[in-house]
Amino acid sequence: MELPRSSALVARLEVVPEAGSTNTDLVRAAVAAPEAWPSPSVLATDHQTAGRGRLGRSWSAPAGASLAVSVLLRPRVPVERLAWLSLAAGAAMAQALAGLGVAARAKWPNDVLIDGRKVCGVLAEALPSGAGVVIGAGLNHALSRDDLPVPTATSLVLEGGPTDADLLVAAYLERLLALTGAFEAAGGDPEASGLRAAVLAISDTVGRRVRVSTGGDPVVGEAVDVDLDGRIVVDRGPVLGFTACASGDVEHLRYE
């Protein structure tokens, strides 16, 4: 896999034929030799064998069927604002696909859906030193129907979308770097940078009835906002009022 257009957008881009987890490998490399991996740097493959998702989930795909792209950023923003980078990545991928003619939307916090089916997932991890964040995106670009991991997944080839790896990665990086660059320039202010507005504009969750599983009793109601801390705000009705969830597994409810 060659990514010349994508490579021109970042300080360093390395493509490997196979990886267990590009996030794990990039975190390890950035810790071992930080000067060799400036911001932004990218590690990518089209054959990831031990990918990791949110909430400890794992996934893999046949060689050439999905793109794993991990981006190292070292933004100068307050630590408490770093959670916005994960939201930025989901919004950036949804924006990139929409710009290529695919009707993609972002499910809070950072999944990307096409007509309710997942085409991309994002996992952000801070470096142990706290001096940077690695954001991994796994995009199903050429996965066949027989290879879908679950019935609620999809791929770009199944949706009639583009499958050229360099086109897809470059479009994603352009959007991600624009959103995170403005965020850093605004000192980590999601409102002043326009990041919160971008997240809300591409959201497939806000405006829907949802169930948020947070480890305790689920939070059920209408998702009405993403607040300044990046939390999904759920209106639980006149008795329970509003609840802001910083994390959790979100289910879009259709018939409740």
Rank of each mutant, 00 (worst) to 15 (best):
A124M: 02
A165W: 15
W37C: 10
T243S: 11
T24R: 09
P38E: 10
L195I: 05
P78C: 01
A30H: 00
A19E: 05
A50L: 01
K118S: 06
R117F: 07
I232M: 08
G230S: 02
S129E: 13
T22V: 09
A50R: 15
M1V: 13
H252Y: 12
A61M: 13
G161I: 07
G187N: 14
V71E: 03
R28T: 15
W84L: 02
T214Y: 02
R231L: 02
W59D: 12
R76S: 14
A244C: 04
G90H: 02
S39Y: 03
V71D: 10
Q95A: 09
A131Q: 14
P75Q: 11
W84E: 12
L173G: 06
R175W: 03
R52M: 09
L43Q: 01
E18Y: 05
G64K: 07
T22K: 00
S86H: 06
G130W: 11
L72R: 01
G230L: 04
V233C: 08
L97Y: 04
P78Y: 02
A124N: 05
G194Q: 08
E35L: 08
L26M: 07
R231I: 01
R28D: 14
Q48C: 04
Y255E: 14
D204Y: 05
S60H: 13
S7L: 10
A29K: 08
A29P: 11
L253K: 01
V16T: 09
G99V: 05
V71Y: 02
L173D: 03
G207L: 00
P38F: 03
A89T: 08
A170V: 10
V226S: 06
D217R: 14
G221V: 00
V239N: 01
Q48H: 08
D227T: 07
L127C: 09
R5K: 05
V79I: 10
L179S: 01
A106N: 05
L139E: 04
V210S: 06
P38R: 03
P17Y: 12
P38V: 02
D147A: 15
D164G: 11
G99H: 11
A192E: 10
N140R: 07
D46F: 06
G216E: 12
D217I: 00
D217H: 13
L200T: 06
S60E: 14
A170P: 08
T154V: 08
A201P: 09
V212I: 10
L67I: 14
V233W: 06
L195M: 07
A178W: 13
V15H: 10
L3H: 00
T180V: 11
G221A: 01
L97W: 04
P34L: 06
G248N: 05
A88E: 11
G116A: 12
A137L: 15
P78L: 02
L87I: 09
T214Q: 15
L173H: 12
L139Y: 03
A198P: 02
L200K: 04
L123F: 07
G248Y: 11
A185H: 03
L26W: 10
I202E: 09
A83V: 14
R74N: 04
L72F: 10
